[in-house]
Design a protein around this nucleic acid. Sequence first.
DNA 1: CAGCATCCCTTCTGATACTG
DNA 2: CAGTATCAGAAGGGATGCTG
Lengths: 156, 156
Amino acid sequence: MTTTKPVRQAPTKAEYDAFLAACPSRQLLDRISNKWVVLILCALGGDAGDGAVEEGRLDGSGRPGEIDTARAMRYSEIARLLAGVSQKMLTQTLRALERDGLLTRTVTPTVPVTVTYALTDLGRSLHRLTRELRHWAQTHMDEVLAHRRQSETPTT
Amino acid sequence: MTTTKPVRQAPTKAEYDAFLAACPSRQLLDRISNKWVVLILCALGGDAGDGAVEEGRLDGSGRPGEIDTARAMRYSEIARLLAGVSQKMLTQTLRALERDGLLTRTVTPTVPVTVTYALTDLGRSLHRLTRELRHWAQTHMDEVLAHRRQSETPTT
DNA sequence: CAGCATCCCTTCTGATACTG
DNA sequence: CAGTATCAGAAGGGATGCTG
């Protein structure tokens, strides 16, 4: 396996600041702050299956290899898992993520061509966050719904 | 018909699944997966200042009270910090977050009216993720840029 | 199967002008 | 100061038809 160790030598300074409009990290934040990006990362990260995110896995310091069920998925698999995604958006988002180095696209010249997508190390590092993001949404859904309900009642 | 219904009486109830198009958590994920939402949460969470997110704070288990510099901010403060945001988007996003119970809006009837925004507990819980999201974007910016560059070169 | 191309509608987003 | 209201362009997103 490719054991790519992040070669950080000077993590001290803040080269990028997403608060600044012109900063490239602002654009990157815009790209990863996307419904489909989050779900695709979750899919390739192995958060699929029953759909729910296990509580125990979220502490991050579990058994490595178990939490990272990062498997390659075919295009149609992803499309099936991400209910409601259009072919256009899926392809578009996958290509963007490929360009940014978050996932790899592998074409196997079988009879009907087979295309698989898999997370890179970079993608896996982001997947830890997207998984939690999805988990947060599912966990706090009730609280949000309750607050919305009581907000829409301005009756004195 | 609707046959696949995961009604398994699991101990940890998986009521919501963002992979499903009709699930409310999908909409919630869509809302929080937003550039401005992330930045507003970061702003109110106290990630401002020099702009950089400290490395040491990210483990999450630091000294509480220090990492949560969640302070109330005025409208103009937020607008100034989030460079490039239009007042329309800012107001719109703030109201949405208020409805969802992620932040509070306080109007003080001073001479020129003063409006302050502050995170709720719910908002703070999400802020932990948005902070890491922003941090990820700023930290991995170089890797992404490098990969983009080599992607746009077919390298025969 | 895994796309790409096209049409078309909706939403987002920024800019401008105007109040309490 | 902290909005609201409106306009117009840009981007998001879906539906359909067509390839290798």
